[in-house]
Each structure stands twice: as structure tokens, then as C-alpha cells.
Design a protein around this nucleic acid. Sequence first.
DNA 1: CGGCAAGTTGAACCGCCTCAATGACGGTGG
DNA 2: CCACCGTCATTGAGGCGGTTCAACTTGCCG
Lengths: 243, 243
Amino acid sequence: MSTTSSALVRKLNQFFPLGEAEIQEIHALERESRVVSAGTELVYERQTAHRAFIVKDGWAVAYKMLPDGGRQVIDFAIPGDFIGLRSVLLRTSDHSFAAITDIEVSEVPARKMMETFERLPRLGAAVLWAASRDEAMVVEHLVSVGRRDALHRLAHLLVELGLRLELVGLATPKGFACPLNQYLLADALGLTAIHVNRVLRTLRERKLVTMRQSEVVFHDLEGLRALASYHGGYLDQGGQRDD
Amino acid sequence: MSTTSSALVRKLNQFFPLGEAEIQEIHALERESRVVSAGTELVYERQTAHRAFIVKDGWAVAYKMLPDGGRQVIDFAIPGDFIGLRSVLLRTSDHSFAAITDIEVSEVPARKMMETFERLPRLGAAVLWAASRDEAMVVEHLVSVGRRDALHRLAHLLVELGLRLELVGLATPKGFACPLNQYLLADALGLTAIHVNRVLRTLRERKLVTMRQSEVVFHDLEGLRALASYHGGYLDQGGQRDD
DNA sequence: CGGCAAGTTGAACCGCCTCAATGACGGTGG
DNA sequence: CCACCGTCATTGAGGCGGTTCAACTTGCCG
């Protein structure tokens, strides 16, 4: 098995060992791809699109708008993630997706995905595991927004992003490239961009982490993780555990 | 088909028309049941229980605890809901469940459920739809906690509970029986019980809704729904739509 | 009647928001 | 080459929503 350039393979393979057949199949799904430029909407709320996208490169965001113009970010999608997976497994997608950076995505029609899962059940199980992980992240996100203060929330998000990116080889314990601006962070955390700015300053002053010009640098990852009381078993726990 | 006493049948049948075989199968799954007394934990966080419960009667709560003793309620389970469905479809449940009232539940082992779904795919699809609905509710919950103020949050929750209960015949547009105390509401909404109390007073004074001694009474459901800017398509939209 | 859980209310405080301004940076056109 | 943008980051001052702490009340159950 060659060192793969597919983030999705890297992610799934790490915790749900795949055979050569499954890896080849993912490569086949990802063979064709197109580039979507930053800011473009990928899926609109309530749209029933019987397809999903695999993010090969770049960042996207899942969010919902409120009547008053407010926005709540549900999740960020990074390379190796699916966009709109539920609208394939189930019916309607109920939130919107937009490209944050220019992104490269492979479109996967629902029928093709179903057929693939029938042919390669292990791959189906792996993707289902990924979907479950995504949902666990939403739940943890809810806990953050509901019960943690701004400092803990932001710390938690940065630690989690770091871990997720590490799984696909896009981060190290030192830090990672991060295209999120303070408005996106604010809308994810249920805060104001202004307050995010102040909290970032606090984290910087405490020598825990610095975020500047699209780069997150961890100065004290242990301390940051402790601050966030991050356990995050839902991220790195393989699907093969069965006890 | 007789008028069923099964809340699950009522719920699924309403938006995902079931045949006689599926209905009989649900009755078979629910034949045996046991009573769990109020306050009991059903599933502990991170426990890998390969089983789910169908709630036949009573209310339960899904929540996560924080190290500092805080609690975030993820969702309330009412009759006709599953508890721990994901721990069957997927692997680990990642939050805890507790009985709010005495509840009557039917335990469904994972294997039995899988086997049932293979035998009756339409039933499998219906349950998958229910799982999808649950996830949409969590997302909407996140939006509430992240971007709505206390008044809108509480209004939204009450409207949503009313609709969900109506689907299983436990509410009318007039109101419903509700065993939630102000602490549970607070932990669901990311607020303090004290503030929930004040917000309830506001809603009462505005003649929108009254909550007293385990009874929610809608005085102006239209007004309340408008306040909550409730659309809630994710609740009452059937799984059979395909456009 | 005593005891406990839950609801209710007041007063003071604080985390985060709002409004407002200013600075830094890259792009673009004259 | 610089003047002019637009976007994003940064900082200050003041205000509000929601918390905290501390009663007191109400209802229920033994």
C-alpha cells in the first residue's frame, strides 16, 4: 500500500483498518473532482440533494442562518470529511454549506455510494463510523456553547481542530494552518468577533496558543488541553472496539 | 388496522406509512417491557451497550456532565422515542440517559434490531428517518443555545415539545402534561433555573404560555410560535418526500 | 407537623455585547 | 507609485442579559 494522498483514506484507515480493495474504491470515488471557489454555497438549507461531497482539499463550513441575520456554525469540514453525508444516508440536509477557502471536492451521487457500501460493507461501516463521529462532535459542540465560558469554548475548539487535522496529516502538536477568521470562530462559538478577539489575546498572553495570519501555533498544548478539559475520545476512538 | 396504543407506531406511521407487517413487528419488539423508576440512569457515558430502548411511557433525558458539575441536556425522550439508538446503529453512546419520570421501556438488542431491519427494510428506513430527525433536533438545539436569547430559546423548546407530543397523541394545541422542572429546562437551554423562572413569568405575563404544576398550557400558540420563529420542518416532514 | 424538593423573588455582580474608532494589510486603479 | 478601497484585527467605554447569592414560599409526602 503506497503512502496515499487521500485525506479520507488516511482518516478512515487510522481507526478502521481498510483493505486494499476499500482503499482503491475510495480512490475511485475521488478520481474526479472539481474546485469550488471560496465563499460559494455548496448545499442550501432544506435542499434535498441526493449526493454528498468528499473534501479533498480546503475548508468548508456547515451553518444555519436565523431570521435576524445571525448565523450559527454547526461544524467545519476539513480534508477527508464528507459534506452532506446525511442527505445521502437519510433524506434532507437541514443546514447550509459554504466553501471557506477554495476547495477541491469529489461529488458522490447517493446511488453510487449505496451501491459501493453494498459491495464493500467494511467501507460502509467505516463511513458510518465517520458519520457517527461527526454527530458526536455536534453534541460536544452543544455542550461547549451551552455550558462553557468563552475561554474554554475557544480552547476546546482549537484543540479539537488540531486533533482532527493531525489525523489527516495537516497539523502537528506545534500547530496548523487555519483559514478561519474571527467572524467564523465567533459564529461557531456563539460569541461576537470582538469578544473572540479579546479571548484570543488572553490565550496568547497566557502563552497557550497564538493565532495570527492564518496560522495557529500551540505554545503549551498540554496546558491548553487541560484548560479545555479535553478528552475527545469521540475523535480518536476506533470503530473496532467492541467491549 | 386497530387504533394502536404504541406511540412509536403512531409516530412512524404518521409520516412514513407502515404496512400491517411492520406494525405487527413493532408490537412484537415492544411486547416485553419493564419499568424504570424516576431518576435511574439508563446508559452511562462512553458505555458500549449494544442495545437500545424504546420508550413506551414516561420521559427520559439525554445529557452530558462537565468536570465542574455542570450539566448540558442534549435531548428529552418522550414516548415513541428511542434511547441509545446510535449505540446500536453505530458503536458507543457518548452521553448519559436518565429517567425523568417512571418510564416503561422495551429493550431491543442490537442483533435483533439489525435482523428486523433486514427482514423489513421499510421499517429500517422509518427508524433511520427517526434517527435523522433526532439529529436535526440536536442541530436546532445548538442553534438555539448559540444564537437565541433566553426568551426565544424557551419558547422554541416549548413549541417543539408540544409538536413532538402531538405526533404521539400526548398533546393538543391547548397544551400538554410536562414533568420537566425548571432545573431540567435550565440545563437544556444553557441557563440558570432562576433565570428560567423569570423567563417563564415573562411568557405568562405576555399571555403566551403558562407552565404550572406539571402542565404546559398554551394561551396563544400562534404568538408563541412566531416568537420562537419556529418552522420545524425537521419534525413533521415525512421521509417519503423525494423531490 | 416536620422535612425536603421545587418555585419565586430581590440585589449585586460580571461576562459578553454594542457601538464606535483606529490600525494593518493587500488589491486596484489613476 | 501612491491614493483609495474593502476586509479583518484590535482596542476602549458603556450597557444589558444572565448569573450568583441569599432569602422566603409553596406543595407534597411520611
